[in-house]
């Protein structure tokens, strides 16, 4: 007895004509959401974890200060000394009056060091700060 294979009589091809359109949509989405990395971070740091976290909505207002495991401080593209923070941040604040300073500090840093930075920020009148932290799950 001969078995006959059942086969649907419809076409078996997936229509690919609209594929470029779909890809372009995805592409546009990523192009719009992309912010290219502006600065290279020289210091090594791992952020602390926290639960009660708020998001900063306005990215443009953020200015970063990194503090690494070896207690080096980086602002913008360069490593800076503690005494230089005040003048750098003061010029930043003049350009952007309601700047938010995001502190990306390594979790094993001494508090004394953090406070020294905060004192410099207070002198520079950058009063809005944000302790950067990862979400604790």
């Amino acid at each position: 007895m001969k078995f006959e294979k059942k086969r649907a009589s419809t076409k078996q091809e997936i229509p690919t004509a609209s594929m470029p359109d779909i890809i372009f949509m995805l592409l546009l989405f990523f192009m719009v959401t992309t912010t290219l990395r502006e600065v290279e971070v020289f210091v090594n740091y791992s952020l602390p974890e926290a639960k009660a976290i708020e998001k900063i909505e306005n990215r443009r207002l953020i200015s970063y200060i990194w503090v690494g495991q070896d207690s080096r401080i980086q602002i913008n593209d360069s490593l800076v000394k503690m005494e230089e923070i005040q003048s750098i941040m003061y010029t930043k604040r003049q350009a952007l009056p309601n700047v938010i300073v995001s502190l990306r500090i390594d979790k094993n840093t001494d508090m004394g060091y953090v406070t020294d930075i905060q004192q410099e920020l207070r002198k520079a009148y950058c009063l809005r700060i944000n302790y950067s932290a990862n979400v604790k799950i």
């Binding site: 290219l36 938010i100 995001s102 207070r122 009148y125 932290a133």
Partner: peptide, 25 residues
């Protein structure tokens, strides 16, 4: 190709943390 480029170059890290306001000096 373009899509892959942007996928790789994208950083979607919304900056989050604990907000504080320092007192005036």
């Amino acid at each position: 190709l373009l899509l892959i480029f942007f996928l790789v170059a994208t950083v979607i890290d919304v900056d989050s943390g604990i907000g504080m306001t320092l007192p005036e000096f």
